[in-house]
Simulated scan of single mutants.
Amino acid sequence: MDRRSFLTLAAASLALPARAFDVSAASAATDAPVADHHQHLFSHAIARLLDTGAGGPPVITAQDVVALLDEAGIRRALLLSAAYVWGSPSRRIEDEYTKVRAENDFNGAQAAPYPDRLRAFGSFNPLKDYALDELARCADVPSLKGGIKLHFGNSDVQLELPEHAARLRQVFAAANAKKMAIVVHLRASVSKHRPYGAAQARVFLDELLPAAPDVPVQVAHLAGTGPGYGDAPADEVLGVLAAAVAAKDARTRKLWFDVATVANPEITPEQQAKVAQRIREIGVERILFGSDAAAGKNLRPRESWAAFRKLPLKEEEFARIARNVAPYFR
């Protein structure tokens, strides 16, 4: 989720009852995906930070997410910390690193009571001085050690800058050394109009992926930001990555792609066709279902899967995507 999406979230909070996962009900929903690979929690602190006066996101807890999963017949979810928001260069935050740590710990603590349902990844701005320290700290927290979330847009990462590429290589290598999966919102800042296209995709392929050869790397939103699939630069990036996968490039051996917010009610038939084309170029075995934060106009997991099912894919392709589970859940 990018900063623009955060700032347009509705103010009404979720009021969802917690309930146990109904295996029989889930089994009846044979169409439902096994896992939602892209979810977010919002602490009270983050909700306040993102409230601009016109209404910000609700507080979202693990209990809220589990209720939504149950409603959709989905067994598991990945909770991606929003701690990177504290480190956005557009903000000046007092005791910034303290707040980053607290947000990551909130996510880990929320996931801990649901070990069979939820995984939590910590996050941070990878360009900050504390980035490697926070990665190492999260690696020592049982409920956060599985992986990290990096948001290039919110953190204003510019891969065409050698110093940024070098820093990201350090972060990818550190995650690899700690056996932490990486979920990366690859899309450069939209609001700042940063360059984004084939050149950035090549830096990702040539410099970042080789630094983390042993862990899963998940590209969020099919390399875009959502909602929908009308972002031409993102499609250019995805085309480069899809071609590398199709060519069996060894650097893409552990590369995955999630479809969070890609399909929504506003997506055009032409965009639907393009998404289906890219999915087939990549291969359905690498596609992970995800729905994004359950707030504002974002579709909830059940509705998100229904919207995804409207893409021009075959039933066996939907079935394979529904069964896909990222290695960090295993």
Rank of each mutant, 00 (worst) to 15 (best):
residue 154 N to D: 13
residue 127 L to S: 04
residue 26 A to P: 03
residue 164 H to Y: 04
residue 322 A to C: 08
residue 143 S to F: 00
residue 211 A to G: 08
residue 252 T to F: 10
residue 145 K to D: 04
residue 39 Q to T: 13
residue 226 G to Y: 02
residue 301 P to W: 00
residue 158 Q to G: 07
residue 143 S to L: 00
residue 191 S to D: 15
residue 140 D to P: 04
residue 31 D to G: 06
residue 115 P to I: 09
residue 190 V to N: 02
residue 297 K to H: 08
residue 301 P to R: 01
residue 302 R to P: 00
residue 245 V to E: 07
residue 6 F to C: 11
residue 140 D to K: 15
residue 277 Q to T: 15
residue 151 H to Y: 04
residue 35 A to D: 05
residue 103 E to W: 05
residue 80 L to F: 03
residue 287 I to Q: 08
residue 312 P to Y: 08
residue 178 K to C: 14
residue 230 G to F: 02
residue 145 K to N: 11
residue 142 P to C: 10
residue 106 F to W: 07
residue 154 N to V: 15
residue 268 T to H: 06
residue 200 Q to V: 14
residue 156 D to T: 05
residue 17 P to D: 10
residue 206 D to W: 11
residue 3 R to P: 00
residue 220 A to C: 15
residue 171 V to N: 03
residue 57 P to K: 00
residue 217 V to W: 07
residue 59 V to T: 09
residue 198 A to C: 01
residue 221 H to V: 04
residue 49 L to V: 01
residue 208 L to M: 10
residue 246 A to T: 13
residue 27 S to W: 05
residue 301 P to T: 04
residue 244 A to W: 10
residue 3 R to S: 03
residue 267 I to Q: 05
residue 239 G to T: 12
residue 120 A to V: 01
residue 135 L to M: 12
residue 96 E to K: 08
residue 132 L to Y: 01
residue 194 R to N: 09
residue 183 V to Q: 11
residue 329 F to L: 10
residue 232 A to T: 13
residue 302 R to F: 07
residue 52 T to D: 13
residue 174 A to R: 11
residue 232 A to L: 13
residue 67 A to K: 02
residue 259 V to Y: 01
residue 205 L to E: 07
residue 236 E to H: 03
residue 83 A to F: 03
residue 176 N to S: 14
residue 30 T to F: 13
residue 278 R to M: 14
residue 326 A to N: 04
residue 157 V to L: 07
residue 123 S to I: 02
residue 248 K to E: 14
residue 4 R to I: 12
residue 123 S to T: 07
residue 70 D to A: 14
residue 256 W to P: 01
residue 224 G to Q: 06
residue 45 A to N: 09
residue 143 S to V: 01
residue 48 R to Q: 14
residue 21 F to K: 00
